[in-house]
Write a protein that binds this DNA or RNA. Structure first.
Length: 505
RNA sequence: GAUUCCGUAGCUCAGUAGGUAGAGCACAUCCCUUUUAAGGAUGGGGUCCUGGGUUCGAGCCCCAGCGGAAUCACCA
């Protein structure tokens, strides 16, 4: 404890000592049995039924309004808050009024955890309230809690406006801003809904290595680390694709993993260095089937979270109801630019980029150029969930060649609110073709593409033993969650978004 | 990485031709009330992000740094 304590912190430490002097343990070890919740009481209390007459609840003291021999307070627990009515002679039936006069009125502070028991009633002003007959301190708070400010016109502002404060001290943000807590409950429900959907199909939830000697499965720069005993470089995974496909080769017919991936890149509203990706692989299926699967899973997730498929997202209402629109990538580009690029070579595409004012550089081959055109001229305008299919082979080294369209692969992305939310293909299971694609990646790397993939010999060996035809899907859970909870920034759907380490002096 | 903006009390925010640092909430002491979104009085609390510079004098102007945000770049 090297920092200077401010006045209010000193005051609370003084109160702490006074409590100890009174023989009150400020951090009791034993549990406190709770038999109701605040929100549950508000929802179900019925004055005629006389229910909730022996209630025991616990939580944080959020306000205190002292009015002499009787006081009001607000107790907040995990799901809500309820008013407490505390009368001196009820909690101090004997001559000794210390518990009320000293402990409650003076030594308890906003933010303290307390346990209370009593009976529920309705006050003259009609507010459902717990009439407290017993009170116990469960944990003393030593720092003042910011209080939500309500303007005279009724608008409520977050008690903490500084984003840095919110993200670094999420525990405070969660305590004082209930809407924040709700976002994370929704996030958990989202993952739960998707997990249930996949488990019901009989797919197996698995875990694969985070530390990988060869990173793969995506185009991205990795974090590098070191194993002491092996004296070996490991990379934090950028994707788990190649491991999950090994499992399909091993005989599972459906596997999935909610995986933390790590990419050593810039940070922004849409990028956190570590993020969560769902990957699913299903044997004997193709990308057409996977589109149906994706729609069904996300339609149901929206329904599970909100009871409807239509969600407000920023300025828009986004509808996850099936079926979603489907365009090929060439169709989408032609639709938004009026240019048919399907037959163009690299030189012609460079011209198109120039014409559309898209910057290019020497490392960009045909696939990358097409991706640039799509990324700037199409993607931002696709608001409703839309499948874009049939990508150029150059930008999809792990996808199977299109069954009928030369130069393309069987791949789709779903775009929603102007951003990619998932990526999927008929997985490449031809080991000869896969080796060639890896070699093409190595060539791209030599050309200066720092995100080109490494060649993974073990993965090729698995394909040589044989992998059934397989459909694979990856969904960025954080970005999906931003849409599903209408949050503008990835930091708002991560409890602890990555930030520069805080300095304590 | 580039550009722009922000950093003042525990929290939210004012502030100024460049002239002794403010409000609300919170906190403390007291009064009043005793089933309410209390009322009143008094008071304490600041490295105005840090370090330089200009100036008689800087929270304010200039430079650099730190931290954050937005936009862009990067990012399948």
């Amino acid at each position: 404890m090297s920092h200077q304590l401010n006045e209010q912190e000193l005051e609370r430490r003084k109160a702490l000592q006074e409590l100890i002097d009174l023989g009150i343990e400020p951090y009791p070890a034993e549990g406190f049995e709770v038999n109701a919740g605040t929100q549950e009481i508000l929802d179900n209390y019925n004055p005629d039924a006389k229910n909730y007459q022996q209630v025991q609840i616990a939580g944080r003291l959020m306000t205190k309004r002292i009015m002499g021999k009787a006081s009001f307070a607000v107790l907040q627990d995990a799901r809500g808050k309820i008013q407490l009515y505390i009368s001196r002679d009820d909690i101090c039936p004997t001559e000794d009024k210390t518990l009320y006069n000293t402990v409650f009125k003076r030594l308890l502070d906003i933010g303290d955890f307390i346990g209370v028991n009593g009976y529920v009633f309705t006050t003259q002003t009609g507010e459902i309230t717990l009439h407290v007959t017993g009170l116990k301190l469960l944990s003393k708070s030593l720092k003042p809690l910011p209080i939500v400010k309500t303007e005279k016109d009724g608008t409520v502002h977050d008690a903490v406006a500084d984003p840095e404060f919110k993200y670094r001290q999420r525990y405070v943000d969660l305590t004082i801003n209930p809407a924040v807590k709700n976002v994370f409950i929704k996030r958990s429900q989202l993952i739960g809904s998707m997990r249930r959907f996949m488990t019901e199909q009989g797919y197996l939830e698995v875990e694969t290595p985070v530390l990988q000697p060869i990173y793969g499965g995506a185009a991205a720069r990795p974090f590098k680390t070191h194993h002491n005993a092996l004296d070996t470089v490991f990379y934090m995974r950028i994707a788990n694709e190649l491991y999950l496909k090994r499992l399909i080769a091993g005989g599972f017919d459906g596997v999935f993993e909610f995986a933390k991936d790590f990419r050593n890149e810039g940070m922004s509203r849409f990028h956190n260095p570590e993020f969560t990706m769902l990957e699913v692989y299903v044997a004997y299926k193709d990308y057409q089937w996977m589109m149906d699967f994706t729609e069904a899973m996300l339609e149901r997730a929206a329904q599970d979270l909100h009871g409807t498929t239509q969600l407000p997202v920023g300025e828009h209402i986004i509808d996850f109801k099936r079926p979603w629109k489907r365009f090929t990538m060439y169709e989408a580009i032609e639709h938004f630019t009026g240019i048919d690029i399907s037959e163009m070579d690299e030189a012609a595409l460079l011209n198109v980029c120039k014409q559309l004012h898209i910057e290019t550089d020497k490392s960009m081959a045909r696939g990358k150029l097409i991706d640039e055109i799509f990324g700037t001229k199409c993607e931002p305008y696709l608001i409703q969930p839309t499948f874009i299919t049939d990508y150029p082979v150059e930008m999809s080294p792990l996808a199977k060649k299109h069954r009928s369209k030369p130069g393309l692969v069987e791949r789709f992305e779903a775009i929603c609110n102007g951003k990619e939310i998932c990526n999927a293909f008929s997985e490449l299971n031809d080991p000869i073709d896969q080796r060639k694609r890896f070699e093409d990646q190595l060539e791209l790397g030599r050309r200066g593409d720092i995100e080109a993939m490494m060649l993974d010999e073990d993965f090729l060996r698995a394909l040589e033993y044989g992998m059934p035809p397989t459909a694979g899907l990856g969904i960025g859970i954080d970005r999906l969650c931003m849409i599903m909870t209408n949050q503008p920034s990835i930091q708002d759907v991560l409890f602890f978004p990555q930030m520069k380490p805080e300095k304590f002096d």
